[in-house]
Design a protein around this nucleic acid. Sequence first.
DNA 1: CTCTATCCGTCCGATTATCGGACAAAAGAA
DNA 2: TTCTTTTGTCCGATAATCGGACGGATAGAG
Lengths: 258, 258
Amino acid sequence: MPAASEAADPNFMLSLARGLGVLRVFEGRSSLSIAEAARFSGLNRPSASRCLHTLMRLGYVREHGGRYSLTPKLLPLAAGFLTSTPLASVSQAVANGLRDRLQETVSVGALDPSDPGRIIYIARAERNQVIAAPLMVGSTLPSHCTSMGRVLLASMTNGAREQWLSGAVLESRTERTITSPDALRGELCAVAEQRWSLVEEELEIGLRSLAVPIRDRDGTTLAALNVATFSDAHSREHLIDRYLPDLRAAAGQLERAI
Amino acid sequence: MPAASEAADPNFMLSLARGLGVLRVFEGRSSLSIAEAARFSGLNRPSASRCLHTLMRLGYVREHGGRYSLTPKLLPLAAGFLTSTPLASVSQAVANGLRDRLQETVSVGALDPSDPGRIIYIARAERNQVIAAPLMVGSTLPSHCTSMGRVLLASMTNGAREQWLSGAVLESRTERTITSPDALRGELCAVAEQRWSLVEEELEIGLRSLAVPIRDRDGTTLAALNVATFSDAHSREHLIDRYLPDLRAAAGQLERAI
DNA sequence: CTCTATCCGTCCGATTATCGGACAAAAGAA
DNA sequence: TTCTTTTGTCCGATAATCGGACGGATAGAG
């Protein structure tokens, strides 16, 4: 039982959507049985089995003792996007530069095109590259409690934002997370006006981060650039006084390059 | 006109294969018109149009003035693979460690499951992280003229290797590239026995690289670990005397961790 | 050891999603 | 302008796909 409203489009290939839906179920899970894939994707057993069978023959999935897992074949697709999209490749270079300048972790993210509730990292430069980070290019985070998410949500049209807000559940990540739609709406309004967002310990206790938008020539916001710090290292004022100008400069550099 | 031999499989979803085929056409191209997508994917116009339309509704593709391009939505899929596959995540950590130890660029790669002719990078640690590298996780390279490719080809069963060799065109990248199937077969035989591969300037003039296999408990080769150097920096002997022991140690560490 | 609950592979009829040739309009290029 | 290429759409025929159902296999519980 998919959406129920996606019918009546003679140009929509349902089988393709189903197959990609099965692929998506692997996000975060290392292996799946057929029954699990069926449950998580909302398909019946035979359909899920057919999808996995097809994906296996195409080389995207492999099977071991009844359990299916992804192969590296997805990686070239992602790398193709990263290298052929100017926004992505330039973002990585700019993030590296700003990281070196500030000695802080710098990231660039965009909204998931089909779910404004989450952001996707498209570039990331870590302050301390030794640590195995829990975040990387391709990682996702909720948008309502992150500085990049706030910047991106603030850039949406009123209609789209309200539509999303009406159906969204604002998960509480810490006791400081804004979970009320009204409060979030107010905050987004301020973000839209000041053109930056500072979020303190709403995603995780101890984290403070600041983000600014990346816009194209038409003024459309394409992505957000942010710097993430530990709360006890720098004050709110320090971020705004010291880092915001550099963030803005880097954002401008990126905007000129794409 | 696809393959012509893939018919008669009642469990194969052709539409899914077609859609993924269209996605794959974007590798390396930043944007495509419908007609181009149709040409490159081997479909007719209406079919390619349907695929793009569907991919757009699913959020994997976007359209601007009649040209279609990928969205970041593919990235979480790749990141999901990297984080949920022990081989991939541990590889990155081991590569970082070996990079720090040798002060050289270290990579881990695997064969494309549906095309032994190319290898896919699943981890990479650069010696000089300032340079914007042409290679990253997800990049692909021909296997016949790379050290990782040789190691991986040497691990194939005779049957599979011969089948691939019989239909492969061994592209010449430099004047030193082995392009004769017989010569390659001989080289692979040696690689299989000595358990390492040293390739000198067959991919690009000035590059010398050394690779060793990564095997699971059953002895099946899953990937290859390599160190890449400039020819004028270190001799062939230096690589074998100095780097091979460390490469082997790192490979063993990786093998124990997965 | 038996019973039970899943899970898996498969079959097959019904349906419907999909295919692709064709046409007309639109957009460019010459 | 004229010619070429692209695009959106229609539609009948076809074949691909769906999913309920069955039987065997497996595993864990009692």
